[in-house]
Design a protein around this nucleic acid. Structure first.
Lengths: 239, 239
DNA sequence: AGGGATAGTGTAAGAATGACGTTATATAAA
DNA sequence: TTTATATAACGTCATTCTTACACTATCCCT
């Protein structure tokens, strides 16, 4: 390897997490409120990583300490290290306040996960669920990271659809399932063709429970059978 | 964000590049020879990044300075930051020799690209093309990185097949194309079905040139038409 | 009993996939 | 010049997947 005179980067490293939930109608994103004198906006849950802390561990810790949320499986999808990503004066000032030290460029590794419905966030945390469509301008380059996360989700939905079932309640109706698929793929899905597709998913199994007290024909509840799923998808399964 | 007493990571950051070429018969990987008293092995071309250097720029620079190879499009596919990845004493010693400083954990961002055939490597460089099947144990966690790169390539081959045409000479025979597809997908491809698939690729256009002085019926040469390809694949194109 | 709301079902046409064997044409060898 | 050998090029059929499309069933409410 060449010996160089140019100074070598010795940067802070962080993780940022995009966590997506589904309330039955919309996709929602877990965000953190930044409330200071100058700043009233939101950001992805993220944190610098500690000395000798593994990346995946840092991501789990971040969600635990910032939102009280535990996630079984987070997957890394992209790393951001542009020189400009922490150049906004408001952002750098906020970083100094938060970490009590001078922080130059931060290289951040972005993680993605889905969660079942919208886990309750204990009140001591500054985290909130925000509907995807209501998200305004975020801190740093977090809007770009979120967009990349959504593409990543669309890809995962094809290769490992369990990330979608992971968002639904234990018992769900086909309408809920179809709404979710439709949101993720960002297109309308034909009702009958969707039922047909269901038949090719042996891991979506009907229960004997039906909706109650709805003012129309009651829908049957289905459940996701992880064992059958793992057989179908072999080793590729999530965990 | 929480204020913390645990020391925050302030690590070296590097890029490692997996560059794949095709000689008409085999896939080959660009590797760097490590030749010291203790070490006689190979590694992926990689380098620490410089202060204020963008990640993508660092990857391009690395290939340029380590192998004299210029690449138009490198894509990041995964970041490695395990605490153990630089714990091998031979590796840490080598790092200190190369960079004249103490190097603890390195977080590395792995990049992938294909190149047309096997670009000639000027003799002053320690880089070599190594057939994929002949690759032995590499430095650090580079075998794992290479495996991840190959999965990434298989995925890209579906979404953006131009990375495959990017490996072929300007004029190529259908046999070459099929060999390449077959290697990447790691399965046999039926000759007639492959011809059928070609008809659905309007961007593979026949030329009026044929092989010369071959002791059998001469094969027609085809070329890859990037303009037609870009129309077919819309915005998703590589560049 | 009727209105309103959502659940749940089948069919037919076109497209994509996968299996399979024969003829064409160039050089080299006899 | 004939023959051997090596690879190129080509079509059909059965199966599966995809897409478009409309009516009946069931529950609650009034």
């Amino acid at each position: 390897m060449e010996s160089n005179t140019r100074p070598v980067a010795h940067n802070h490293i962080s993780v940022d997490c995009v966590v997506i939930g589904f309330d039955g109608e919309q996709l929602q994103v877990l965000l953190i409120k930044r409330d200071t004198q100058e700043l009233h906006d939101m950001k992805l849950p993220g944190s610098l990583i500690f000395q000798d802390e593994d990346l995946d561990d840092a991501a789990h810790r971040t969600l635990d300490t910032l939102a009280g949320v535990q996630i079984d499986h987070l997957s890394q999808f992209k790393t951001y290290g542009s020189r400009n990503r922490t150049k906004n004066p408001l952002d750098t000032h906020w970083l100094q306040q938060s970490w009590h030290q001078n922080i130059e460029r931060i290289v951040t590794i972005a993680y993605f996960s889905t969660v079942r419905q919208l886990p309750r966030i204990p009140s001591q945390f500054k985290a909130r669920w925000v509907p995807l469509n209501d998200i305004a301008e975020l801190a740093f380059d977090h809007n770009a990271i979120l967009q990349d996360a959504l593409s990543h989700m669309r890809m995962l939905a094809v290769t490992t659809p369990n990330i979608l079932f992971n968002m639904l309640p234990r018992k769900f109706t086909i309408l809920q399932l179809r709404t979710l698929f439709s949101l993720v793929q960002d297109k309308e899905l034909d009702v009958r063709n969707f039922h047909k597709k269901l038949k090719q998913m042996p891991y979506v199994v009907p229960t004997e429970e039906f909706q109650k007290s709805v003012s129309h024909r009651a829908a049957r509840y289905y459940r996701f059978d992880r064992k059958i799923y793992n057989k179908v998808y072999g080793v590729r399964s999530m965990k």
